[in-house]
């Protein structure tokens, strides 16, 4: 990073802090808002690549994954001490009444952020499928994307859980990738990125006010 970039980043974060302070956020509320904003920006930077709308840049994905890791897990939960919720905060009281779920989601985000870093070299095609595709390379009619996903009647009707549902994190093991039975090194980066998004959405819908 050049000095110029560092200066730019400092100015930007100062502006961000000023904007949040103006919003009435102070102390831990401001700190967690800055963390959330940093993660939002990291997501914004790589989302177009994950949609195939921009050229894939492994370094950018690594950088975004690092930002997510910086703000997930314990780093996130320690910014939520139980206290009266100030007006500027989007936090919902369920965070503390359902702390177990909240902290599990924060840990899950940390896990998927690590996974994103592991899967970053794979780009948008999973390792195994990519090798397979290379072997059977046929330029005539080879659709790169996998067949559209079809859910079973039982899945659609909510009778059975989804087969590829995000794994529930029961207990953090020494090797987290084994704990959930998925080798993230084999996954396509965009599949992991979707898991990151799902984790954010689960947490936001349960614990964020308003939107």
């Amino acid at each position: 990073m050049t000095r110029y970039n560092i200066f730019g980043a400092l100015v930007l974060s100062a502006i961000g802090a000023a904007a949040l302070a103006h919003n009435g956020a102070t102390g831990v509320v401001m700190e967690r808002m800055m963390g959330m904003s940093a993660m939002r920006d990291a997501m914004r930077d790589i989302a177009p690549m994950m949609q195939g709308q921009a050229d894939y840049d492994e370094m950018a994905v690594q950088a975004a994954a690092a930002v997510l890791q910086q703000h997930a897990g314990k780093t996130m939960t320690q910014l939520f001490p139980e206290e009266a919720i100030p007006a500027a905060s989007y936090a919902r009281p369920e965070i503390w009444s359902n702390w177990e779920r909240f902290s599990a989601l924060a840990d899950e985000l940390n896990l998927y952020a690590e996974a994103l870093a592991m899967a970053a070299p794979n780009g948008l095609v999973p390792q195994t499928a990519m090798t397979g595709a290379m072997n059977s390379m046929d330029h005539g009619n080879m659709p790169m994307q996998s067949a559209p996903k079809r859910f079973s009647v039982a899945e659609l009707m909510g009778v059975e859980p989804l087969k590829d549902a995000a794994p529930a994190i029961a207990s953090p093991a020494a090797d987290e990738t084994q704990a959930v039975g998925i080798d993230f090194k084999m996954m396509a980066a965009d599949d992991v990125f979707e898991k990151v998004g799902q984790t954010c959405a689960s947490c936001h819908s349960a614990f964020r006010k308003g939107k």
Partner: peptide, 24 residues
């Protein structure tokens, strides 16, 4: 493209992720 993507993943173009009933 990004609205199609958001309807699958909840990820919005500004990098934020849906919450509330839209996430559901």
């Amino acid at each position: 493209a990004n609205l199609t993507y958001a309807l699958k993943t909840s990820v919005m173009p500004n990098g934020d992720v849906f919450g509330g009933s839209m996430a559901e």
